[in-house]
């Protein structure tokens, strides 16, 4: 699985480029000159022990934090100083480690909020029910339903998001992020709290998402999941990048083993 798609030679389109990014919170350096890139059509894993700076890295890419120095390039253009919703409209979407759905909206509405990201419909369109409103509305409804089918919860589209089971809420988060029509889909520990059977299904889903044409960035703790599904892996430790390569390379990298696998292998098995 890991040999599919992008990295088989030739000039590769870089979707996103993290270029020498440093972030300091007061005296704490959360990210220290980190550079890597994400190529079109691949699944990139971002791993590291707790506190390694994975989520911080994520937050820089999606505009939640501003880099102290260095920059993030998306499609060759720097993301610095862009409003968060603009970044989403450019094509980066994310899910949250601790699920953050719109709990008292229905499942379908949650996904439609994502689908609205590119909508040009405004107040007057809505009030006057212009053709643009009707057209966009039916288009995003169809799209949202399709996405719910892809993640496998279309039967529950009328349910409140809060009433979904934990696993389905994670699926809904993925569908909502996909609805924004991203070029890059960032999943922040999507398997947290899953049992092995659910993790297996999630791996299938992630592959399926990639096959739909999305580029995926995956932050994950579970090594088996990461090794099983990603094309390339970037390893962080204490805010520094310590390794980068295919899953097989990472598995044999002594620095990684020392930093991470040696500790984690036990509870992964």
């Amino acid at each position: 699985m890991s040999e599919t798609g992008a990295q088989t030679g030739g000039p590769l389109t870089k979707v996103l480029e993290v270029d020498d990014v440093t972030i300091r919170f007061g005296g704490l350096t959360a990210l220290d000159s980190v550079s890597f890139d994400i190529r079109e059509g691949e699944i990139l894993g971002l791993i590291g022990p707790n506190g390694a700076g994975k989520t911080t890295c994520f937050n820089v890419m999606t505009g939640v934090y501003q880099a102290t120095s260095g920059q993030v390039l998306f499609d060759g253009k720097p993301l610095t100083k862009l409003a968060r919703h603009k970044i989403t409209q450019l094509g980066i979407a994310r899910t949250f480690q601790n699920i953050r759905l719109f709990r008292s909206m229905t499942v379908l509405e949650n996904v439609m909020v994502g689908a609205d990201a590119h909508s040009k419909v405004g107040f007057w369109d809505a009030l006057l029910r212009t053709p643009r409103h009707r057209h966009t509305e039916s288009e995003s409804t169809t799209r949202a339903k399709e996405l719910l089918k892809i993640v496998g919860i279309s039967a529950r589209h009328d349910e409140l998001a809060a009433n979904l089971s934990y696993g389905d809420q994670r699926r809904l988060e993925i569908a909502r992020a996909m609805a924004t029509g991203p070029k890059l889909l960032c999943l922040d520990e999507p398997a947290a709290g899953f049992n092995p059977a659910e993790k297996l299904k999630l791996m299938e889903l992630i592959r399926r998402v990639r096959d739909e044409g999305y580029t995926v960035l995956l932050i994950e703790h579970d090594m088996r999941l990461v090794m099983g599904v990603t094309d390339r892996i970037v390893v962080l430790e204490f805010g520094r990048k310590i390794a980068e390569g295919t899953p097989a390379e990472i598995r044999d990298n002594p620095a990684v083993i020392a930093a991470y696998l040696g500790v984690d292998e036990e509870d992964a098995s």
């Binding site: 919703h85 994310r94 953050r100 909020v113």
Partner: peptide, 9 residues
């Protein structure tokens, strides 16, 4: 925050 990151201004 989530709304903002889903592209809602």
């Amino acid at each position: 925050d989530a709304a903002e990151l889903m592209g809602v201004p």
